[in-house]
Every structure is written in C-alpha cells, then in structure tokens.
Amino acid sequence: MSLELPAAGSPRGVLAIGRSVRRVRPIILPIVTLTAVLLLWQLAAVRLHIPSVLLPTPSDIAQEMWHALPLLVDQAVPTALDTLLAFAAAAVLGIGLAIVITYSRPLRDTLYPNLVFFQLVPKVALAPLFVIWLGYGSPARVAFAAFISFFPVVISAALGFAGTDPAVLRLCRSLTASEWRSFLLVRFPFALPAIFSGFKVAMTMAVVGVIIGEFISSQAGLGHYILRAGSRLETADVFAALVALSVLGVALYGAVALAELGVRRAYGRR
C-alpha cells in the first residue's frame, strides 16, 4: 500500500495548504513586517542623507553590533543577573502577599487600597532614592526593579486564588482536607494561568527597572553602555545596545513562558 498525497488542485489539497499557511503565518508575518520596516528605514536614511548621529541605518547598527558583540555580551551579564534577582524577589514577595490577601479579609482591606495607591505613584521618580538608601551597588537596582515588578504578581495571583471554583473548595472541605492541602492541590493549580500572566508582565518590568537603575547608578550593564554611548553621540552603538536589550528581554520572557508550560504540564499529569 502506498501513501497518496492529495493533489494541489483538489479540495483536500487546498485545505492542507491553507492549514500550512495558517501554521506558519504567526512566524512569517512578523518577519516580513520587520524586514519591510528595516528596508524602508535603510532607504529613507540613505536617500534623505540623514546624518548617522541622528538616525543610523540598520546596516550601520548591524555592523556596530558585530564589532561590539563581545562587549555587549559582557554588559548583558550584570543586567540579566540583576533582572533575575529582581524577578525572583518580586515573585516570592508577590505570591506571599497574594496568599495573605486571599486568606485574611482584614489584611486584604488594609493592604489592597494601599497597594493600588503605590501602583499609581510614578515610581521612576523614586529610583534615585533607592541609591541614596541602599548605596550605589547592585542591591539598589535589584530592590527598585523588584519594587516596580511585584505589583502585577500580587494582583494576578490574588485574582487567581480568589477565582478558584467554590464548588471544588466546598468538596475539599467536605472531604476534611486541610487549608494547606486545599491550597496546594486546588487553589494554586487553579491560579496558575493568572500567576504566570503576572510573571510575564513582572519579568518585562524587571528588565525596565534594572535599566532605570543602571541609568541612575552603575558601573556596568546595558543601561550603563547606552548612557555612555549616548553621551559620546555614538547613536549606532545606542541602537546596538537596545537590540541586545530586546533580545535579552525576549529570552527572559521566553524562559517564563517555558516555565509555565512545564509547571502546567506537571500539574496536569497529577
């Protein structure tokens, strides 16, 4: 027996092509759009004779990236480490606070309005104070980044915990399950999608927080590199560092997405 492939012109063939196009569209479309934008940018910068100090061409930036790649990797390391530390702190503090808010109504009434109030404070204005309070080293940057990124974790986790199906919780109580076991086996898995939504936002905010921290005070890092290149009017270098920063941000976001996949699979198997 031989395997017969559907002919291209047949209805089954058209359906198969349509499915393939739909499958690759999310990858192809962004790439095509990005390429078109870069081409337009290159053409406009060259045709309009825009000085590279104002707007370097994508080819200039690519060249600069190639030259500065080892240096950019070096600078990305402290930024990535600070970001991971800040994210970890935000995740632990955020989930801890969400648990407290979920289980204690008086504490929720006390803390929740204040959390919202602090969220509305323009936190960038507070960044210099972290350096004054904690010194000009890594702790100030990590603390500031954790401060701005923990709020989405608290809110998402609290909503996730509160959104657990009440019928399932009643069933747990009727089966005399302890609060801890109910939390671990019901509330937490139910809240996972919400928690990871918060984590994804928190990770991007942690990157931003660390970069702001590096702008305020740093000896190394991509934020430091951007400041230094900007002050010397090396605009292509600034763009190269921004590209490196975007790659780092996407990688860290991707790590959270992968972790979500792993955790949800692990809970799904139980």
């Binding site: 210099p128 350096v131 004054i132 010194g135 000009y136 702008f215 305020i216 005070s217 740093s218 000896q219 430091h224 400041l227």
Partner: peptide
C-alpha cells in the same frame, strides 16, 4: 574608585559625605 550615578544623586552623595 569611580562610581557612576545620575547627576542629582551624584550631588547628594558628596553633600551627605557618601
């Protein structure tokens, strides 16, 4: 020991003797 900071923080660090 050269420490890089934002201008306002720099000014405060000397003022406060840090």
């Amino acid at each position: 020991t050269v420490v890089q900071t934002e201008p306002n923080v720099r000014n405060r660090l000397l003022g406060e003797g840090n």
